[in-house]
């Protein structure tokens, strides 16, 4: 068994199992806690819980007026990063072939040249996010091992993927194996770290939305 076989086979399977079970477990462990019963009288004429939740979700897609200027860098950087990552993961022909083998669904790919450029931009946003975290006194105080680890496991697949397609430094097969192993690391770390925010954001924004909207407040 070559390194690539291990990476593609048991390593990825194990990582995916950890990801799926871990995410389900963490979400259930929150969702199965008691839910507070709301007994106060809702302000007349305010939206339903669902509409309140959706409203705040949408409003929080972009920073509110007074904060816009200061939040602009981090917001744009985050959007470019998230979109870039999605384009790289779901747009590269090789990824689509892989996903088709694994899950049986496929879609048209983007030209690889475009995806490479996007990958470089994505890596740059990650570098910017790290630089911001390391230089801002507020972020330095807040940051823990988990934040840096979550950054690392996200940046690694992008960097190793670029390295693999560049055919530099080592044989393609080895680089590909390393790339796949870094994806396995990302999946396995996912439920343990900050990456969980990609699921939790739906809960937190919705609940805050419902909380404020019944009071007649839109924030």
């Amino acid at each position: 068994m070559t390194l690539l076989d291990v990476a593609r086979g048991p390593a990825l399977e194990f990582a995916f199992a950890v990801f799926a079970i871990g995410v389900a477990w963490r979400l259930l462990s929150v969702l199965l806690l008691p839910w507070a019963t709301e007994r106060s009288a809702k302000r007349p004429g305010t939206p339903s819980r669902a509409m309140g939740a959706i409203g705040l979700f949408v409003r929080h897609l972009w920073p509110a007026g007074p904060f816009r200027r200061n939040a602009l860098f981090i917001t744009l950087n985050s959007y470019v990063f998230h979109l870039g990552l999605a384009i790289v993961v779901f747009g590269l022909a090789q990824h689509i072939v892989f996903l088709q083998n694994a899950f049986g669904v496929s879609w048209p790919s983007l030209p690889s040249g475009v995806v490479y450029v996007v990958a470089v931009i994505t890596l740059a946003t990650l570098a910017a996010a790290l630089a911001h975290r390391l230089t801002s006194p507020v972020l330095r105080l807040l940051s823990t091992f988990n934040d840096y680890m979550s950054w690392f496991v996200t940046a690694a697949p992008v960097a190793t993927g670029l390295l693999a397609v560049s055919h530099l430094w080592a044989p393609y097969e080895t680089l590909l194996a390393i790339h796949i192993l870094s994806v396995a690391l990302l999946l396995a770390w996912f439920p343990f770290g900050k990456l969980m925010h990609s699921f939790l954001v739906f809960l937190t924004r919705s609940e805050t939305g419902a909380f404020y909207s019944r009071r007649g407040v839109e924030i």
């Binding site: 929150v30 806690l33 904060f67 972020l139 807040l142 925010h197 937190t204």
Partner: peptide, 22 residues
């Protein structure tokens, strides 16, 4: 007192620091 919403809140913070500004 840790009900569902409190736990989600505690788990979801991404340590982005934007709240400092507010």
């Amino acid at each position: 007192n840790t009900e569902e919403h409190l736990s989600s809140y505690l788990e979801a913070c991404v340590h982005c620091g934007q709240c400092a500004d507010a």
